[in-house]
Design a protein around this nucleic acid. Structure first.
Lengths: 172, 172
DNA sequence: AGGGCCATGTAAAGTGTTACATGATTCT
DNA sequence: AGAATCATGTAACACTTTACATGGCCCT
């Protein structure tokens, strides 16, 4: 699940508690406009990250407030984060969520990684277009041609977007 | 779930048993290339359709074969099918699966309905593009502009596909 | 004898969605 | 006084995916 690696990416910058992380996913924020995340689910994800050994947590007591549970990334979590950031997504439908989350995370962390990611995704997209064109040549049925045409149209649009995006990934 | 209405659409032509329906979703078939459906899930869907009152079933004994359970659509199932076929999908990401299944089903049943569906989906798409352009004008952040540009690119591609598809929906 | 077809399902595990539960504090 | 913020979670339900379970027939 891409949301979990995105959380790892946020924790890689500095340790935080759950409530602080919910703010990154509120409406009108960059992440919040890409993916909707209820606070209940956030805590569930953090629990799972801990179970995987990718984060660890300590309780921080406060005066006149409930204690905070501060999460920090482990070295195994760092490894997982870099594995995730290093590979493009396989399926076109994952571009909308997974790829954008990868790109956001990579860009915050290391813009060069974001650019590498865009280039690799562009290669995946190009290869898929080639295979769609081959399918198209062998296809006679009109409805099946329409389906392939739709995929071609979507992937061509994504490809030209990826090309335009490549040079525009240096944060603020 | 769109698969269930697609099953209703198949049963609207004539009653069938589960195993017969699995063949419609095998690899290399039109439906099978749009959505992957394990036979286990198919039986689960049929059970759910019956629970909803959209289909009913009778057992048909056979000599030297396990009995077949024949499913047929009810009038309430017909109503549900037409409701589903009558409305375009709301979200762009649902075009790949839900909309294609609607289109396939509508086209088998009544090509004029398929054409109406394409036209309504085109309107939805056009309105969404207008709203994306408005968002784009108010946006300064470079990454958020990239996200909006991606959505614009995808929806523009879909729109032109929908326009091309409109006249090509009469089955073989 | 072995593989594939006919024909039905269940079971387990994971994922996601929605809503609720708690309770003090600070702002208007 | 009431609303929003701080801060944590649980519980119930729905849905998906994957694998397994059963067992005879037909063809080579």
């Amino acid at each position: 699940m891409a949301i979990e690696q995105t959380l790892l990416g946020l924790l890689a910058t500095k340790p935080r508690h759950g409530y602080e992380l919910t703010k990154e996913f509120m409406p009108e924020t960059t992440l919040g406009d890409i993916v909707h995340l209820e606070s209940g689910m956030l805590y569930a994800h953090l629990k799972k990250l801990q179970k995987e050994g990718w984060v660890e947590s300590t309780l921080e007591p406060q005066e006149s407030r409930p204690p905070r549970r501060i999460f920090s990334i482990t070295s195994s979590g760092q490894a997982e984060l870099h594995r995730w950031l290093g590979e493009p997504v396989g399926k076109t439908r994952d571009i909308r969520l997974d790829f954008l989350l990868k790109l956001y995370t990579a860009r915050q962390h290391k813009p060069a990684l974001a650019e590498k990611l865009v280039n690799e995704q562009r290669d995946v997209c190009e290869r898929f277009i080639v295979s769609l064109r081959e399918q198209m040549e062998e296809e006679d049925d009109e409805f099946r041609r329409l389906v392939i045409e739709m995929r071609l149209a979507q992937n061509a649009a994504l490809l030209s977007w990826l090309r335009r995006a490549a040079g525009r990934l240096t944060p603020g």
